[in-house]
Structure formats: C-alpha cells, structure tokens
Computed example of a mutant assay.
Amino acid sequence: MRTLALLLLCASGAACAVDDALVLRCRALPDTASRLACYEALPVAPPAEQRFGGKRLEQKVDDEPAAIRSTVRGNVDGWRYGTQLTLANGQVWRVVDDVDAVLPELTDPAVRIERGALGAYYLQLEANNSAARVVRVK
C-alpha cells in the first residue's frame, strides 16, 4: 500500500526524495516479494512544512506552503547579520539582512516565515512586526 501511495505521489508532480538508483535497484529484483519489500523500504519525502525553505531552488515544490508559523526557542532581544534563530520545529534560520534590530527581550516569540520574490525568505516576529531576510541553515 505504501508503494502505491509513493508512486501516486511521484506521478502527481510532487517532489520525490527517492533516488533513481534506489528505484532501479528495486526494479531489477526478480522475486516479487523481495521487490515489493525493496519498494516499501524506500524513503518518503518529508512533510511540506519541513521542506519549507530548503535549498531546492531548481525544483519548485507545488505543495510547499507560502509561509510557516512557529516559535523561536529561547530569548530574542534582536538580531544582526549572521544571527541564527532556532525554531521550535527544529529548523535553523540565519539572518542575511545587514540591518540590526534591537528589540525588548522576548521569550519564545511567535514568528512567521514567508516566501518572497526571487527565492527570498522573510522572518517576522508576530509580537512587534520586526522582520528580517533569512536563509535556512538546517
């Protein structure tokens, strides 16, 4: 069943994280049961929110959201070029704006990261609308 879902997902135009070599290896197996087990062991693409902001500019992902919401772990009192912010969902984003922001200290502030033009991403603090251009590190 998982194999069918994976094949339908790939056929629908969604990004497939499966390496072609792995699929060819499974297809070459002569025994039906072992071929099915091989297909079911193939990795499945992570959810769209986890792929958000990943370095895949050459492949436009149709199901990637236009923005995500999360919280920054810990205290935030501002940022400058190079500051890294770790979100509650495990993603790490680095500020690439050359404008410093000095803010009142916030603990676990809510943020929104949205896609901009030409592959840019912008992180916005929901508490005071401060925003910075960011790139995803992890």
Rank of each mutant, 00 (worst) to 15 (best):
V61F: 08
Y122P: 01
N89A: 14
P65I: 02
A45T: 15
L4R: 12
L87Y: 00
L87V: 01
L7E: 13
M1T: 07
D108C: 10
L7G: 08
D31L: 12
V23R: 07
C16S: 15
D20T: 02
S34I: 02
A127K: 03
T83F: 08
A33Y: 04
L87G: 05
L125G: 09
D98C: 12
G54M: 10
I68Q: 14
V99T: 15
P104H: 05
L4M: 10
A5K: 13
I68W: 04
L123W: 03
C38F: 07
A120K: 14
A15L: 08
R94E: 15
R25H: 13
C16V: 01
V99H: 14
D62F: 10
R69M: 11
P104F: 05
V111P: 11
Y121G: 03
E49Q: 10
L103I: 10
Q59E: 05
C26R: 06
G116M: 03
V95H: 12
S34A: 15
T83N: 08
Q59W: 07
G74Q: 06
Q50M: 09
V72E: 09
P30A: 15
N128K: 00
S12N: 04
D31P: 00
A14I: 02
G116R: 11
G78E: 02
V137G: 09
A5C: 09
R136C: 06
A101E: 09
N128D: 14
L42K: 06
R115V: 06
L123I: 03
R73T: 15
L118N: 14
C26D: 02
W79D: 04
R136G: 07
L9I: 00
R69I: 03
R80T: 12
F52Y: 08
D108I: 05
P65C: 08
A37I: 02
E105Y: 00
V76S: 01
R80P: 00
G119I: 02
A117M: 07
A11C: 09
D19Y: 06
V99C: 08
G13E: 07
D31E: 11
A117V: 13
A37N: 07
L8V: 11
A67Q: 13
Y81P: 00
M1R: 06
L42E: 01
G78L: 02
L22I: 00
D100K: 10
R133H: 07
D20M: 06
K138D: 14
V135I: 15
E114Y: 11
Q50Y: 00
L29N: 01
D97V: 04
A11W: 05
R73H: 09
A101D: 07
V135M: 12
A120S: 15
R94V: 11
P30S: 10
Y122Q: 06
L125I: 03
G54R: 11
T3A: 15
Y121C: 06
S12W: 01
W79P: 15
V134I: 12
Y122A: 04
A5F: 10
A45H: 01
V111S: 06
Y81W: 06
E114I: 03
Q91H: 12
G54F: 02
R115T: 14
A117Q: 11
R133W: 08
V92D: 08
V18W: 01
A88Q: 15
A45K: 04
D63T: 09
V102M: 05
F52N: 11
W93F: 10
R35Q: 15
D77E: 05
E49Y: 00
Y39P: 00
V99M: 09
